[in-house]
Nucleic acid binder design. Structure first.
Lengths: 127, 127, 127, 127
DNA sequence: GTGGTCTAGACCACT
DNA sequence: GTGGTCTAGACCACG
């Protein structure tokens, strides 16, 4: 279920937090669900427990999880809302940036092509 | 040649820097060309000299112009290159951000629609 | 805590930014610390709020502070690192320039004397 | 008399102008003296004539030489004065930079050591 | 209360 | 004439 690439440039703990966020967004992990224990995940991924701990700390700091000492780490009630909120924020940033680039001369066509390229070319250019 | 909208929510001095950047990008203003004087532009646009000064200071800071006290403000030799460089940078940011949003579940179709909306609405949404 | 010399030929706003940089370098002002408000500092130094504003804008531009409208101006998390980075950069420039001057015939002895002169005279030579 | 390093990062034409400046500074080349011809220098250094031409163009642009079509390139009367002027300018820059670094916490001792290192250690630290 | 922007009018140093 | 700085006083949006 989890994949961690030791060789990647992006920190391992971020790879972990990222995947948990995906699971929550997809509804595979819901509020009050329990995350795997630090020890267990550490063994499964062959990753230093400290790194797992750091990832969990990040999730906590972002309000996505709640740590209950002695019991485990649980998805917070507001997790879904927080993720939505963050997406809205980023979408706002994306719109601002797109506007700026348009003023700098980038055409709508350029954007459409880039998007198709990023999406894996599952959309034909003819529109 | 210049248009300033005093009612816009975007600061007047930014409107001015923006238009000068456009002129340089379009080649209507080339390296070593002289910009209008602070006082002259102030009169033409009915804008306080201080505001023009702030705009020119911005252009200077960005390396697009060189101010020579007592002589005037001139387009720098590197202006065009700097603008290109900045566009490249921003395009890179845009791609990263788009990728992130795709991972968060935004579909290619959503992006295509947003782009068409942004390309269609020429005027400021602000105010 | 602050001293501003209105008679100095170096602009007041630069004197202010300089002193804040000193405070940060000395650790008397740490990341997330709040700077005095524009109005308060304006009263304390008997300096026009606009001038303080300009100084704060400079600090912001340099990444040393973060302005939060309605709340205040705060030392940024990266401030210390930025100052260190800038010193490294300037030291590199200094070495290049010194090499160049040596090639142009300036002797090591000349440099030693200049340094002692600069280190001895604490006050501004200006005016 | 001339040495050009093809592998160096600094452009060949700059290496050439640099060496001519040295000769003028040292008095080995005086006002009204004739520089070697483009063809001759090209053969001696095994360098493309265009590169030599570019170097000579630079010297002309800087006012150090005067090209007389059909006769040759001659050291200008003002060459020595221009070089002195440039050194004064650079020395001013050096002083400003040194002051700045001192304010940023670099001690006089640090500077003395750097200078000795750059000069090749021909000056003992004991002072 | 905070920071941010703008106007009006003034002075300086430099060319 | 030019750019650069400063003062005085005002208004806005935000928290």
């Amino acid at each position: 279920m989890f994949r961690v690439d030791i060789m990647s440039r992006i920190p391992v703990y971020e790879q972990i937090t990222g995947q948990f966020e995906q699971l929550i967004r997809a509804g595979l992990l819901s509020p009050k669900d329990k995350l795997p224990s630090v020890r267990q995940l550490s063994l499964d991924l062959s990753i230093n427990p400290n790194t797992i701990q750091k990832a969990f700390g990040e999730l906590d700091r972002r309000g996505l999880t709640t740590s209950v000492p002695g019991k485990g780490v649980f998805v917070s009630d507001e997790a879904v809302e927080i993720l939505k909120q963050r997406s809205r924020q980023k979408m706002g940033d994306w719109i601002s940036l797109t506007k700026e680039l348009m003023e700098a001369g980038v055409s709508a066509k350029d954007f459409h092509q880039s998007i198709d390229a990023l999406a894996g070319g599952e959309h034909d250019t003819g529109k």
